[in-house]
Design a protein around this nucleic acid. Structure first.
Length: 603
RNA sequence: GCCACCGUGGCUCAGCUGGUAGAGCAGACGAUUCGUAAUCGUCAGGUCACGAGUUCGAAUCUCGUCGGUGGCUCCA
């Protein structure tokens, strides 16, 4: 479904403007560095970039100069002229441009596109020229440079990027820019970026006292503050409720185990670079677990299983530790200690499809609950080249299980896209890609098939005929990790959580000291009703108390003054600003309890 | 891990081309007792991330380390 949107964008005028702006930028950069090497410069989601190999690193001042020169160039109304040429001619033109020569060879020989991916047919080779700048390019472009409005683009940042996206290649300098049809659109976009910053989970996490990082504790190792701990517990409670209904049982396993376990599981052969290095005790190596699965497989294998026992659904919200490269860490979204919302389901082959769909169904229930509407299910497959390296070397089972997943998804009428070379080492998986409201994309829920580990651990059950048979295993984490989930939810709700998720659900605000005791009393009654409440009896004025409760995004404020105390009532101010004066406490308790029990979106 | 940039009290930020730190908010204390988003005052709080170097003198310059940010690679 996103395919359609992309095709549209590629045909749009905006796409041409951005692509053309990239060429203009390349012209400006090449004027500055005549010996520089150009590579590729495509449009992207909200702008464009161009990758260069330059004699020195660009500085922010350079960006200004480049931008200034670009404005001059676009005003020149230079035509974008396309010429179709032969590979030989192209090689002559770009004789001093090694990256372009590589691209031309790719086009000529195997039909590789600029990212090195194979093309279906051998494409024609064309160049585009504007003013003094010639680029190998298939287009399309705007008619002339003046169609790029001089006040509707902006260079955004300099970044490093590997040639052809391969970390073994040279790192190039990438300049990102944004370009729009007019000044107003550009300003709107820049405004959106500002707004997005306000919803950044790292900022909200600090302001709402959800989590913190400490240099001395270590990068990627979040400390959960009391408010954050409440949220995690709410997520666990939710998961436990759902899973109990769905027939899961819960287990607990240790954080470290002997090397042998991870050799056995295949983690060390295939996953070692994402694991913390071993520690040695009494001459034996121990590893901190990056996943719970090997332990769960041991639990499966701890007694003889009958076909009647399946599906066996073992759940554990265990904390795992992965060594993520330092540059990959990102707030709560990418951490080194993470609590998986994990379970492993052991099924017979004939149960696979139904069980797999039940897991997908569970995701959808969660998405509905959180109001997540924009997502894409992505079926991640192995690649032939990765067999024996990234992936367990058993092509037959890969193809078979991939087909089983496809079949299940098709039968369940669940739309999905396929992604080659993205699977887990032990089998294909469905990842759910979602976008937080501020446009950040990542995968949340995951549902993975594992044919490899059960075999490695020699897991068996006794079938109807009394024969031993190997189960399939489904790894699933519909709430992802609690870290990433809460990071996502912070941005998704902008900190305005539904009542059930709010760390503090009610703040009781006394107007003067005379009502302090009454306020404390009410907070206590609320707590006895299972509502997270506390009284603000500080020496502040009511307005200041309301302001601080609003800033902490507390869903309900109960204001109590002389009148309320006399009448034994409360005045309710809701986070959205609405209010309901002089209601009996019981009425409010009923409302709050109802919202919490239903996990309602509305306040 | 790679490229670039950044790092001043809990938070947000001032501190020009080097002369040894300042504000607001938050906090503590005191005063105020007030009807739906900030009452007033006083006080306390910083080895300017850390370590070297240059210099008569460094928060300001150089190098290194650590941490963060934007990307690349990778990913729940």
């Amino acid at each position: 479904m996103s395919q359609q949107v992309q095709e549209k964008y590629e045909e749009s005028n905006l796409y041409k403007i951005r692509h053309s702006a990239a060429h203009v930028m390349a012209q400006a950069v090449m004027e500055m560095f005549p010996d520089g090497k150009i590579t590729i410069g495509p449009p992207v989601g909200d702008g464009f970039y161009y990758d260069f190999d330059l004699p020195r690193n660009l500085t922010p001042e350079d960006l200004e100069a480049i931008e200034k020169r670009m404005r001059q160039i676009v005003q020149g109304k230079h035509e974008f002229k396309k010429t179709v040429i032969s590979a030989e001619e192209a090689k002559k033109i770009f004789a001093n441009q090694p990256y372009k020569l590589e691209l031309i060879e790719g086009l000529e020989k195997g039909g590789l596109d600029e990212y090195g991916n194979p093309l279906k047919e051998k494409p024609e080779i064309s160049i585009y020229q504007q003013d003094t700048f010639v680029d190998l390019c298939r287009g399309p472009h705007v008619a002339n440079t003046k169609e790029i409005k001089q006040d509707a683009f902006k260079l955004m940042s300099i970044a490093g990027a590997y040639w052809r996206g391969d970390e073994n290649n040279k790192m190039l300098q990438r300049v990102y820019g944004t370009a729009w049809e007019n000044k107003k659109q550009l300003e709107e976009y820049l405004h959106q970026l500002e707004e997005a910053k306000k919803r950044d989970h790292r900022k909200l996490g600090r302001e709402l006292e959800i989590f913190t990082f400490d240099e001395e504790v270590g990068p990627g190792l979040p400390l959960w503050l009391p408010n954050g701990a409440v949220m995690i517990e709410e997520l666990e409670k939710l998961a436990k409720e759902m899973e109990e209904k769905a027939g899961y049982v819960r287990v607990r396993t240790p954080i470290v185990s002997k090397e042998e376990l991870f050799l056995h599981s295949g983690h060390l052969p295939y996953y070692a670079e994402s694991m913390y290095p071993a520690m040695e005790i009494e001459g034996v190596k121990y590893y901190v677990k990056p996943m719970n699965c090997p332990m769960h497989h041991k639990i499966f294998g701890s007694k003889q299983r009958s076909y009647r026992d399946l599906p066996l659904r073992l759940a554990e919200y265990g904390t795992c530790y992965r060594y993520e490269k330092s540059g990959e860490l990102f707030g709560l979204m990418r951490v080194r200690s993470m609590q998986m919302n994990d379970a492993h389901i052991y099924v017979r082959e004939d149960q696979f499809e139904q069980e797999f769909l039940r897991v997908v169904d569970l995701y959808l229930k969660y998405f509905e609950l959180f109001g997540i509407e924009k997502y894409v299910m992505r079926l991640s497959l192995h690649s032939k080249a990765g067999l024996g390296k990234k992936y367990v070397d058993n092509e037959r089972l890969w193809l078979k299980t991939e087909d089983m997943v496809r079949h299940a998804m098709n039968n369940g009428n669940v739309p999905y896209v396929e992604a080659e070379d993205e699977a887990a080492f032990y089998g294909p998986k469905i990842d759910v890609q979602i976008w937080s409201v501020i446009g950040r994309e990542f995968s949340l829920a995951t549902n993975q098939v594992d044919f490899a580990q059960p075999a490695r651990f020699d897991l068996k059950y006794i079938n109807k005929d009394g024969q031993e048979e190997a189960p399939l295993c489904i790894h699933r984490a519909p709430l992802s990790t609690h870290e990433r989930m809460i990071g996502f939810l912070l941005e998704h709700f902008g900190g305005n959580f539904p009542v059930w998720l709010s760390p503090e659900q009610v703040r009781v605000i006394s107007i003067t000291d005379n009502q302090n005791e009454y306020a404390e009393n009410i907070a206590q009654q609320l707590r006895e009703n299972g509502i997270r409440a506390h009284a603000d009896v500080s020496a502040q004025r009511m307005n200041a108390k309301i302001r601080s409760a609003q800033l902490m995004k507390v869903p309900y404020m109960l204001v109590v003054g002389e009148n309320e105390m006399k009448a034994e009532q409360v005045s309710l101010r809701v986070r959205d600003g609405s209010q309901q004066n002089n209601i009996p406490l019981g009425e409010f308790v009923a409302r709050a309890k109802d919202r919490i029990a239903r996990r309602a979106k509305e306040l």
